[in-house]
Nucleic acid binder design. Structure first.
Length: 118
DNA sequence: AGGGTGACGATCA
DNA sequence: ATGATCGCCACCC
């Protein structure tokens, strides 16, 4: 095991496991496709944790952060950061409908089996 | 323990 | 479409 100090036997899951699943979902986003904070949280078996997805995006280096947008395809980053995100997405062929990503064409659908417990 | 903070999300005026 | 509100979850004083 890596850094798994098993000291607490929580009835739920260790915060690390949830984080790991979120990271996997994000890393599975193919170029040209996007997903939303909330959708990723759900796909990772952690519904309601959109804000945690954000935190993970900020601290884990190397993730395709630009492929994660707000609900409905909204770009949530402000100013320069938002501009860069749109720039990167366009480079991958992502198209927009006004200020948001055209989710009809670019929303990535996670396989319905990314859950935690089985 | 208590309160403030976010790259959120759904709902309502 | 815009802004306010409330619910959500973890982190940081």
């Amino acid at each position: 095991m890596s850094t798994r100090l098993q000291t607490k036997g929580k009835s739920k899951q260790s915060p690390d496991d949830k984080r790991a699943r979120v990271v996997r979902c994000i890393r599975s986003l193919p170029s040209g496709m996007v997903s939303s904070y909330g959708a990723i949280a759900s796909a990772a078996g952690w519904p309601g944790a959109a804000r945690q997805v954000v935190q993970i995006l900020r601290q884990v280096p190397g993730l395709p952060w630009h492929r994660v947008v707000g609900s409905g395809g909204a770009i949530k980053l402000q100013g320069e950061n938002g501009a860069e995100q749109r720039f990167r997405l366009r480079l991958e062929g992502v198209t927009f409908r006004g200020a948001r990503v055209d989710m009809k064409r670019h929303e990535f659908k996670f396989k319905s089996g990314h859950r935690a417990i089985r």
